[in-house]
Amino acid sequence: MAEHAISFGKLNKYYGDHHALRDVSLDVEYGETLVVCGPSGSGKSTLIRCVNGLETYAGGTLSVLGHTVGDDERELEAVRKRVGMVFQNFNLFPHLTIVENCVLPQIRGIGRPRAEATEVAMAQLDRMQVGEHAQKFPDQISGGQQQRVALARSLSLNPDIMLFDEPTSALDPEMIAEVLDVMQELTRGNMTIICVTHEMGFARAVADKVILMADGAIVEQGDPEQMFTAPKHPITQEFMKAVKS
């Protein structure tokens, strides 16, 4: 077993001339819940999208569960089998029913037989309290329900790591709580979680560690209590003031 669940070493990334990630070094421990915050365009999403290879990086090292994330397709596959991801826009497959959204990736992704996959899918949908909608199509249910289906879909593959990319940013205010509730339940288990979010109350309640990014670099990291009440770096102070008001 590798020393850290995820280990970023001086990671760099460019979009053309834009320097999206600057020398990001960070270790995420097993079972830890890490919250990434920072102003938009600061590289938060880019950082977590590197973890399962949705983004490539230009320099540095990145190891996930002992596998090197890079050009090697087999290593990438090994990583993706154990890393789940939930997106801002849910990204459910609109042409498949809710249950099929959760079943198909199991069949195709990890070769689970259909009967077993259906059982797993239903269990996860029930856990996310959307089991009753199993036969509906994604656009027949609300945004909050869709995001919980997306969660169930990822969890059906039994990941060790979950990545949340602003999971509540596209939701109407009254639906945010129902998604945060099920996410909070997840953080109590022994899953390793990285969550990009603007929900500071949630961050404070569940995070083991908080990092703040600006302009592609980590400007400050610490435990949530310190980060929220006594931030040291001026950018962090300014950001915390802005999100509180």
């Binding site: 990204n91 195709r108 879909r153 990822s154």
Partner: peptide, 20 residues
């Protein structure tokens, strides 16, 4: 996002094409 979701769910390339 459709392909990104399929990639992150480890669906192989042929399945991304045929299923999604």
């Amino acid at each position: 996002g459709q392909v990104e979701a399929a990639v992150s769910l480890n669906m192989p390339f042929w399945s991304q094409v045929v299923d999604i």
